[in-house]
Each structure stands twice: as C-alpha cells, then as structure tokens.
C-alpha cells in the first residue's frame, strides 16, 4: 500500500491519468444514477433492476453491432427498446408497487432483475461480450498518460444525454409535470396532472437512460448477463450520497465515484475494488446519520 502511494506521488502523471480515467467512467455511472434518482424521487421506487436494464442496453447495442451497425446508431435503438420495456414493466408490476411501503419496490425489482438476467442468458448466452472497436488511444508523455477514445466518446455522449434530459425536465410540459409530481403528487393531481401518465413516463425514461448507458458500457468493458448488480450498487451509492432531486450533486458524486474507485483500487489493490464501492455506501450512510442526529440536537 505504501509502495503504491509512493508511486502516485513520485509519478504524478500516472495519478493524473487515473483521475482522468475515473472522471470518464464516472460520467457513465452518473448517468445511471441520475435515472435512479429520477424514479426514486418522483415515484419513490427503488429500482434494483437498474443494472440489468444497463446490461440489456449493452446487449441490444452489441447485437446490432453484430449486424454491422455502428454503436453510435445502436445506442439510440437501445434507448428506444428499453423505453418500451420500461413501459411494459411499469404497467405489469411497478404501477402496483408505488402505493405500497418502501420495501416492496426493492423486492419486486429484485425479482424483475432475476427474470431479466436469466432471460438474457437464455437469449444471448452466458459468454462475456464486448464491442471491441480497437481504436488507437491518445498517448501523452511517452505514453505514461493515455486517453482511450471509446471512454472519451462514452463520456461525451453521457454528458450530451444528461444535458438533453435536464433541459427536457426544465422546459417541456411533461418535465414540469414530472417535477410537480415529485414535489407533491396529490397537489399535482388536483392541478389536473395525470400522475399515472407521469409515472409511466418517468419509469420508461429511466429504463431508456439505462439502455443508452449500457450501449456506452458495451464499448468499453466486457459484460455478461449476471454483471448488472455491480452497476445497481454504484447507482445506489451515488444517489444515497448525493441525495434526491439534486442533479448537480448526482453528477459530482458519479464523477467522484469513478475517481475513488480507480485510485482506491490502485492504492489498496484491485481486489478491494468492490469493497471500496460498497464500503463507501456504508460510510456515506453513517456520515449522513451522524450529521442528521447532530442537526436534531441543535433543533432540540
């Protein structure tokens, strides 16, 4: 561990490389987390199938790539396909979950996650797949610092998508209705907003965002039907840390997550990568707990 820290400080270019890399992949994490924050904030559904939507999106993009369709065009298809699936799942399951207690949505979406994993395994097989574009990386400082074009593309696409969704939320009628419902569903209903429609739209939008994120992931990592959970966990960590309804915080936390993951794995060893991600969640929860209890004492 000390040796690794020493390397980080003696060759700062390497550290810089890891931070840049962390930010690039953090963009994708932020995208997935934003979708989760949306359904969590608007309809109080904690979607454990988040990562499986992502992996399905990756499979759609990969499948199209097999027919020679460039991922740049495959990703919109994944977006649309997952939108449809999200809508179906909403109508079948989620709409019956919203009114129940908080725990129900966790379990119901866990069940959906299992069904999705197995179906993907049956349809696409269990092999690790990936889209290997084999693009040449940009190298700086005698290749000590490398930036991978696929990650750069993924990051830029994630930002573009995020900006599009945000401006949609701000400008459009539907976006306003969604925000109104998030603030107070009963009042929104009184004002004539069809909350049922808002809910189904929000859930479909989340699934679609995940689908697009999955398309990006298919270009940079290997994936298989059972790997979705790790993306769900990351999304939960980010949303828990950033809180709901604060988009800037979600993005910042997503980027931070990427950086912490890469540098943490470097310092402690790659075997601690998962432990760092999940451990971070525990730490965030406990810190929030301490802060809130302190606040309570002040009020008293």
């Amino acid at each position: 561990m000390w040796d690794n820290l020493q390397i980080m400080f003696s060759i700062p270019v390497l550290t810089l490389g890891m931070i840049i890399d962390g930010l690039l992949i953090g963009g994708i994490f932020a995208l997935i987390a934003y979708g989760l924050a949306l359904v969590w904030g608007v309809m109080n559904v904690k979607n454990l199938a988040q990562g499986d939507f992502v992996i399905l999106g990756a499979y759609v993009t990969w499948w199209l790539y097999g027919y020679g369709i460039n991922p740049i065009f495959g990703i919109p298809v994944a977006f649309a396909a997952l939108w449809g699936l999200g809508w179906i799942i909403y109508k079948l399951v989620i709409c019956r979950v919203i009114e129940h207690d908080l725990f129900t949505s966790l379990l119901a979406t866990f069940g959906i996650a299992i069904v999705m994993q197995q179906t993907m395994k049956i349809v696409f097989g269990a092999d690790e797949q990936t889209i290997a574009l084999n693009l040449e990386s940009f190298g700086f400082f005698d290749n000590l610092l490398t930036i991978q074009p696929t990650r750069l593309i993924a990051f830029i696409s994630a930002i573009v998508l995020a900006v599009a969704v945000i401006s949609f939320m701000k400008r459009s009628r539907m976006g306003q209705a969604i925000r109104a419902t998030a603030q107070n569903p009963r009042a929104a209903r009184v004002m004539g907003i069809d909350t049922e429609k808002v809910y189904s739209f929000t859930f479909s939008l989340n699934a679609a965002i995940c689908g697009a994120a999955g398309g990006l992931i298919s270009m940079i990592w290997e994936f298989q039907p059972f790997i979705g959970l790790i993306y769900s966990i990351r999304a939960f960590v980010i949303v828990t840390a950033a809180g709901l309804g604060n988009l800037a915080a979600v993005i910042a936390a997503g980027l931070g997550m990427g950086v912490v993951e890469q540098t943490g794995a470097f310092v402690f060893g790659t075997e601690y990568q998962q432990a760092i991600v999940v451990g971070l969640l525990v730490v965030v929860l406990l810190v929030k707990l301490v802060l809130s209890s302190r606040r309570r004492q002040v009020v008293e």
Binding site: N4, G17, M18, F223, L229, A265, E271, Q273
Partner: peptide
C-alpha cells in the same frame, strides 16, 4: 488480485506503467 466481478483493470495496468 482481481475481484470476481471484474470489469476494469486500470489500477493494475497503471502499476505496470
């Protein structure tokens, strides 16, 4: 050592650099 749900080896590769 690599985790079982391995996706990314950037940390190890950086050490190699």
């Amino acid at each position: 050592k690599l985790p079982r749900n391995l996706t990314d080896m950037t940390a190890t590769m950086t050490k190699i650099k």
